[in-house]
Amino acid sequence: MITTVTLNPAIDREYFVDNNEVMKNQFIYNEKDLKVYPGGKGLISAVNFKALGYHDVQNIGFVGGKQGLFFEKMVQKYDIISNYIHTEKEIRNNVKIIGRNPATYTQYNDYTYQVSTEEVQELVNRFQRSISESDCILISGSIPEGVHFDIYQRLIRIAKTKDKGVFLQGSGEALKLALAAKPDIVTPYFKHHQTILDLEMDTKKDYIKAGHKMQELGAKYVMIPFHCDRLLFDKNGDVYQLSPQEYCIINWLGASDAYNTAFLDYIFQHDFDFFEANLRGAAAALWVAENKKIYLSARENFNCCLDRLKIKKLEV
């Protein structure tokens, strides 16, 4: 079984309109102009794993209220095993308005979801007993209000006690605290903070410094997004740069989740090879970014991007 964790799920709603204007009523009559789907980084990876043919994939996290029940129904349509703590408060709705002419993109991100201390403890208990069958746990995404920043650290410690591999994609204080639990693979995201471990990210040197710092604090392997490239830190602390060639990016949504999925997929299918796994991850992310897709389909689709990827060692 593969376990993915989504603590801050959302119902994503996309509305496509001809011209998105303030103070103008819009009418949507065509169903292709309205998309509603379950969102959350761990969940997108779970959908990807199912698409790649894995039988048992569970998504653990919180859902809340009537909208949480709706969210869970949507998840179950993908044949993912839902494993949610049902909270009292309603989960989030993210609204995206996409205008065609002129091309505009307006996003309303909802960060109102709250969970209680008891609900957090219930999640930890549920996590502890539900990972028995999993060899690897993928933890990714933000955390809702009410959850202490040490949540990832707690979950990773439980996973490590049970001898499970952990892949973490986190940010901010939660990432910083999680490193003490020694996750195997760490990739930070920093769209909200523009910092990693409180370090400002500007030059390539800053990124390298942050990568090494994460390893000092406990991460075995680190991958840091660096514009459209990735900086890879192997377990010896050597640094490599993975770069795509001749690409045209039209979509970011789902790219990093595709990366995480294809990286782990390679490891599940072969022996552990940090660079080969990263190449598969990058190929999957590139395929998503160039094809306006959110989810992966077959391996063959993204493997065709492999020959446009290069890894070079950096002299540090």
Binding site: E72, Q76, I80, I81, S82, N83, R126, S130
Partner: peptide
């Protein structure tokens, strides 16, 4: 229906009702 919504023997009646 794939779900692992569950409870353990030591959980309380109150928790069962809430779930």
């Amino acid at each position: 229906i794939r779900t692992m919504n569950s409870i353990t023997p030591k959980d309380s009646i109150k928790k069962a009702i809430e779930i």
